[in-house]
Structure formats: C-alpha cells, structure tokens
Amino acid sequence: MAAHHPSEESLMAYAAGSLSEPMALLIATHLALCPGCQRRSLDYETLGGILLANLPPVEIAPDCLQTVLPRLDNEAGMAADAEARAEVESGPARDHPAPDDPVLPQPLRDVIGGDLRSLPWQWVMPGLHMADLRLGRPPTRTRLMRIRAGLALPRHGHTATEAVLVLAGGFSDEYGRCRRGDVRVSDPSVTHRQVIDADEDCLCLVVADGPVKLTGILGTIVNRLKAF
C-alpha cells in the first residue's frame, strides 16, 4: 500500500488528459498500484463530465448529424472498432512475449514490453544503471533506474522537477521512506541523500525535467567517473 501519493493537481490533470505523456505514464502506473488514488482520479473524471456539460456549445457543421448517421454502422469502421476493442481487452500484440513480471504494472508494460532485460541499460556508477525510455520531449527524460540493495547514493540536488515512482525495493532519505507504489516529487529546493533498502534492489520510474546536481566530494568523484 503506497504511503506517498501524487498531488491532487496531478490527479486532476491526469483525468483531464492534460499531463505530458511521461507524467501520464507515471501517474497511470501509480494508479495501478493505489486504489485510493484510482478512486480520486475517477472523481476528477466526474468533474470533467460536469464541466463538459456546462461548456458553452460551439457551432458545428450544419449537416454534421446527417454525415455521422450513415457512418454509424459502416462495416469497415465496425470491424476496426471490434479489433481495437479486442486489443483493449486482451492487450496489444507484442514483438516479444511479456512474461508475468510482477514488477511492471500494465501501463508500463504497454510502453516498454514485459522484459526488463531488453531495455538499453547504461552503467552510471557502481551499483546504478539507467535505461532511457525515449518518451516525452526534451528536456524531459523518462528513465528506469535500477540501484543495488544497500547502496547509499551521493547527496544531490535537482535542477528541475523530478518525479520518482518506486516499482520494487525501496529507499530512505531525510524526507522518509519510499517503497513500491510510492511517488516522490522533488523540486529544485530539495537536496537529499538516498539509502537503498538492504534487502532488495530498487527499481524506479523517473521523470525528470532536468538533470540532478551532485554536491559534495562524492559528487565530484561521480562527475569525474561520468566523464570517462
């Protein structure tokens, strides 16, 4: 059961359909793990329905209904729709079979497939690997991060907003403990030093609008390592 949730603003923006694709993915993945937020986001869909009904109607093409009526039972359209529907019900076809990896909720599997090993993992520092999911527009980057159990990350700050969703394992820092399902949003005012739980590797989805800022002597060393 998640202890740290996305803000009401982001639940509303998710329901309204106005979140960027990376943030929509992060929120959808949290919702898959958090019935409470799922319920709250449904409230915002209800709000959307009410606001839609209250919007001032705009002019539509005068013959609009007449053009739509013959299309209703158009066979090609019906077939395409049935196909789309079957896909929604059984999940889209995949190039590689998706094993039942219990770590990845379905919204994430839809984007990256079921096999974590097939991702382009890159070594960042001892015990830390990242895979870029190539989602969203620069400077935003969407990545999975895998960190070895027990590792203490160097203290760092953030140049822009960064949202983290824990998928497996967990970490602790000055602000508390985060485990599977938890969402942590850090803005540039936050500096912290995360220690990964000792019993399990930590897997996170990270949506960052800018890079982290390493501080302290360890940060300098990591920056040097990264330069190689």
Partner: peptide, 19 residues
C-alpha cells in the same frame, strides 16, 4: 498511440484490490 490506463485484471496489481 494508446493512453496508459490501469487494467483491473492486471496480474501485477498487488495490495488492495482495485476499485
């Protein structure tokens, strides 16, 4: 492409059952 939405029948769901 498709909007990511949680699937109530998802085997990866854990903890409380979905609404």
């Amino acid at each position: 492409e498709k909007r990511p939405t949680p699937d109530p029948a998802d085997p990866a769901l854990s903890g409380d059952p979905p609404v």
